[in-house]
Design a protein around this nucleic acid. Structure first.
Ligand SMILES: [Mn+2]
Ligand SMILES: [Mn+2]
Ligand SMILES: [Zn+2]
Ligand SMILES: [Zn+2]
Lengths: 151, 151
DNA sequence: AATGCAAATGCAAGGCAGTTGCAAGTGGCG
DNA sequence: CGCCACTTGCAACTGCCTTGCATTTGCATT
């Protein structure tokens, strides 16, 4: 059963792993998404959209991808849930709305050169950084304002 | 049983909660620590040092403190475990050594004014941010160098 | 195209961090 | 002291994630 879902066959074989329906579907979903997804989000989408998949397969697939550096695994700051996103090898940051949990990407790194400066000042070999910005998105901002003006 | 462990009695009463042996002990441990601790770390230290405590009490106490904003709860970026630290109301960041998991505090926020600038540029109400810097500490840097020079 | 085998999967059980219900204990107040 | 709401211990439970094992499937080779 290998119709044109084999979109990622080359990529997967290049990494020395088999091209399967599930793996292709998961890569496709991650590619379509603008922000990191939880294993459960992937699981539910796949169960509804394509043929059924087991949750453990989702986790194993994600682990495999992460070990091949195809995707990046992280943990959500507020509840610690695991998040997965395609590794575009591009440096990115997000605005996290604490009202509705929306994630908004910001394209460039606001602190890139700052890291460079810092590297020369401290006895610590910096290899990377993670910046998360919290607040209220356009929609929740309005809602918040309405609420607080009642007080 | 309220000897001089009642160091935080006033603080606790001010928040409308009772001063107990466990609560005082937990606050003391958090105050002594230079970096955030897990519930389990607190649990083990308390079990060994003072009279026994139940892990659920540790969690409930930490939740109570967090709801009063006495402490800050976060989730470790690499494994998602919950971390707790005293809320000094001071803005801090850490260098995380990916070699030995050591956390090194850096005093000032390297991006404070940058946030200010950003606030005026985007349609998002920024309330805070979290910056983590990864790399190798002085010790692990040396070790790493030794390893890579073998190749 | 058929064969063979290692890799991938489904299923069910298990592990671990954190939570909750409830009965017993304790702090703070009169 | 004596009361009572708050706190705690204990044990069961939940949710996220992992693992063992039998079965299936990709894919290389014939
Ligand atoms: Mn950056
Ligand atoms: Mn900062
Ligand atoms: Zn929002
Ligand atoms: Zn180190």
């Amino acid at each position: 059963m290998l119709d044109e879902n084999s979109k990622y066959k080359e990529l997967l074989n290049r990494e020395g792993i088999k091209s399967t329906r599930h793996r292709n579907a998961i890569l496709e979903l991650l590619e379509e998404s603008e922000f990191p997804l939880t294993a459960e989000q992937l699981f539910i989408t796949l169960r509804d959209k394509t043929a059924s998949i087991d949750l453990s397969t989702v986790y194993r697939t994600l682990d495999t991808f992460a070990s091949k550096n195809l995707i990046i695994k992280s943990n959500r700051a507020d509840d610690g849930k695991a998040l997965y996103e395609l590794n575009h090898n591009e440096h990115k940051h997000h605005l996290l709305c604490v009202g509705c949990h929306k994630l908004i990407s910001i394209d460039d790194c606001p602190i890139g050169e700052l890291m460079q400066t810092l590297k020369n000042k401290i006895d610590f070999d910096i290899t990377g950084h993670k910046l998360e910005i919290y607040g209220y998105c356009h929609d929740c901002k309005k809602f918040n304002h309405t609420l607080s003006s009642d007080a």
